[in-house]
């Protein structure tokens, strides 16, 4: 097997409010021998809000991002669930609607680009599971996380809508009973915590317009993990991470109970298990102290 190489769509968050996610992505890719070609031309995906205002513009901009991955002839890897959804949904809609694809390409032509539909789009979590394999991860673990109960928090946009599952990775999972992150925790030597909120919403997308609802959902998620006796949580989504890590004050207030747990990005958890030096994983950027490293 040659060296794994992907086009990396970082999304905006990894470059701004979750710098630790960018650091740990690069550290883990290095450890796993993955080459990531960063799509520095990419724009914001619109985060599922731009489309509420202007659906066509959202399609054009996402198609442009994909066109750059296609130029490299590479699978596009995302590290944010919402980037994953918006990009994969754009691909899904264009690949299934020739007229829409033609309209989008008419625009892309103005800047010398074309969307062909040749690049697969997958989240880093699934790229690791599909292309490296959990057995290989298990073999590579140098610091098993065996003393930790770890609560997986999947994040909506990796698991719903399920119609995208078959298009984005080889191991489609059911949104009502997802397993990928649990399996990854186990491969890293940890104990995965089963709790009701693991596949539920963190509230991120309504945080500004509906802060109480958003904070309640965040609070319920952390409370569920705490009641499941988790030592910490792990998520593949930087937006979920922002809610769970930085909004514990609002969340506690909303549900009338003090809730707080360290929350790791999926990449940080893999990095710890594979023996990456903790300082390369950026835990110092978290608001909720990661006290066990």
């Amino acid at each position: 097997m040659g060296k794994l190489k992907y086009a990396l769509f970082t999304g905006c968050t990894a470059k701004q409010s979750t710098p630790e996610q960018m650091m740990s992505t690069m550290a883990v890719a290095d450890k796993l021998g993955i080459e990531l070609v960063e799509l520095t031309e990419a724009s914001c995906c619109g985060a599922s809000h731009l489309q509420d205002y202007d659906d066509f513009l959202s399609l054009v901009l996402n198609a442009r991002n994909i066109a750059y991955a296609e130029k490299h002839g590479l699978t596009m890897v995302t590290i944010c669930n919402t980037c994953q959804l918006n990009t994969a949904m754009t691909k899904h809609r264009l690949d299934n609607n020739a007229e829409l694809k033609a309209r989008v390409n008419e625009k892309l032509q103005e800047v010398g680009l074309v969307y062909a539909g040749t690049s697969k789009i997958t989240h880093f979590l699934y790229a690791i599971i599909d292309d490296i394999g959990l057995d290989k991860i298990k073999e590579m673990v140098t610091t098993p996380l065996s003393q930790f109960n770890i609560a997986p928090f999947y994040g909506c946009h990796n698991i719903r809508p399920s119609e995208l599952q078959n298009e984005t990775h080889d191991t489609p999972e059911n949104p009502y009973n997802p397993t990928s992150l649990d399996d990854l925790i186990i491969a890293c030597g940890g104990v995965s915590v089963d709790y009701e909120e693991k596949n539920k919403c963190c509230g991120f997308h309504a945080e500004l317009q509906s802060p109480k609802v958003a904070a309640t959902l965040t609070g319920n998620a952390i409370a569920g993990a705490m009641d499941g006796n988790a030592d910490w949580m792990v998520t593949p989504c930087p937006l979920c991470h922002l809610k769970l890590d930085t909004q514990t004050g609002h969340a506690s207030h909303a549900i009338g109970r003090e809730v707080s747990l360290p929350v790791l990005h999926m990449q940080q958890m893999i990095g710890l298990a594979l023996g990456c030096p903790p300082e390369t994983l950026g835990m110092k950027h978290h608001l909720t102290k990661v006290d066990f490293v």
Binding site: C12, E41, C44, D54, L57, Q209
Partner: peptide
């Protein structure tokens, strides 16, 4: 807040390509 949030993405993208969070 919600409508400005949706529209704000266009403003940000026009200015930076990426979002100004």
């Amino acid at each position: 807040i919600a409508t400005r949030h949706a529209v704000g993405f266009v403003k940000s993208i026009k200015h930076n390509g990426v979002l100004d969070e």
